Simulated assay, not measured.
Amino acid sequence: MRPEFTFGGAMSHFQNTGGPKGFLLKFALVYAVIGVATQALALWLQWPVYEIYIRAFTEGEGDISLYMDELAAVSMRSNLMGILMLPVSALVWAMFEAASQRRYMRSARFRLTVGADEGRLLVVALIWVAFVIAAYFAFAIGVLIPAVIGGVVFGAAGAVIFGIVAAIAALGTLLWLVARFSPAAALTVRDRHIRFFEAWNVTRGKGWTLFGCYLLMIVISLVSVLIFYGVLFAAGIAVLGQLDGTAPEEMTRALVTPQIIVPAALAGFVAICFQAALMHIFGGPAALAAKRDPAWAGEGGGVVDAFS
């Protein structure tokens, strides 16, 4: 039987995908390892620029103008090398998104591949990029016009109030539209064909439920992030408090000791794991909507309207 689409079921769908156990843990850990490797590669490509800024603060008392000639000589090359990270990052995203959606739509075990699913998801990602660009301009216009009207009619206070109300309404509309098209990746993996606008029909009658799911997920995520970084901030303040009054050279040496670097690196690794877990969890509601699609005959059966 196809699972019912309910608010609670959508929120917890990442726990009810079927398939071998331990998917989320493997997903998060591998994502973090590859994420660290990718960031290390990006740092290495951009290192000539970072090295100049480090010398500016350690040797030049923070005066970057003394190093502008060196910076100009290496920045273009470093920026060109950095552009190489765009396809690498896109491919890494596609690999993990495909693994996540295969879990949801096919109850597959965790595995990373570079194949047809990943290629189709890259096309879906490009459509999302176009959607975001269009939404940016629509948001700007949707906020600017009410703010101008409010300013003309009620003065500066009216412009601020109308602008804030319009911004909230525009953000809500944007989130609702994102919710309506959110099953695009799940449908693409499900049908083994590029799907995007088809998601509109799949989410008919489910839009507000998806909206509520994503809104609650965003709030929970923000609270979790604030708590996590609040703990790190408090720990950082405690460490700096112990070094208060220490000479700058000694403070620098103290901050690069294993006692500081290892916990900081571990905290960063945990943060990336958390980001990876959110990536998979956030896909749950949309994937359940795709599974609950009345036009879908199930794995191996195709779409009823197209093949009946």
Rank of each mutant, 00 (worst) to 15 (best):
Y50E: 11
I52Q: 05
Y53F: 15
Y53A: 11
Y53C: 06
R55F: 12
R55L: 14
R55A: 15
R55Q: 14
A56M: 08
F57A: 13
F57H: 14
T58M: 15
T58K: 11
T58V: 14
G60P: 06
E61H: 15
G62F: 06
D63R: 09
Y67V: 07
D69Q: 13
E70T: 09
L71F: 06
L71D: 06
A72C: 09
A72H: 12
A72Y: 12
A73I: 02
A73W: 00
V74S: 06
V74P: 07
V74Q: 03
V74L: 05
S75I: 09
S75H: 08
M76T: 15
M76A: 14
R77V: 13
R77T: 15
S78V: 02
S78Q: 07
N79A: 14
N79D: 11
L80P: 03
L80W: 09
M81V: 14
M81K: 14
M81L: 15
G82S: 08
M85Q: 01
L86M: 15
P87G: 04
P87V: 05
V88S: 05
S89G: 13
S89Q: 15
S89I: 13
A90D: 09
A90L: 15
A90F: 14
L91P: 04
L91Y: 10
A94G: 04
A94Y: 01
F96V: 02
E97I: 13
A98W: 04
A98Y: 03
A98P: 02
A99Q: 01
S100C: 08
Q101W: 07
R102S: 05
R103S: 03
Y104M: 05
Y104P: 00
M105G: 03
M105H: 01
M105V: 00
R106S: 07
A108K: 06
R111L: 08
T113E: 14
V114A: 07
V114N: 03
G115D: 01
G115I: 02
A116I: 10
E118K: 05
E118I: 04
G119T: 08
R120L: 00
V123R: 12
V124E: 01
V124R: 01
L126I: 10
L126W: 08
I127N: 05
I127F: 10
I127Y: 09
I127Q: 07
V129Q: 10
V129R: 10
A130C: 06
A130R: 05
F131W: 08
F131Y: 09
V132I: 12
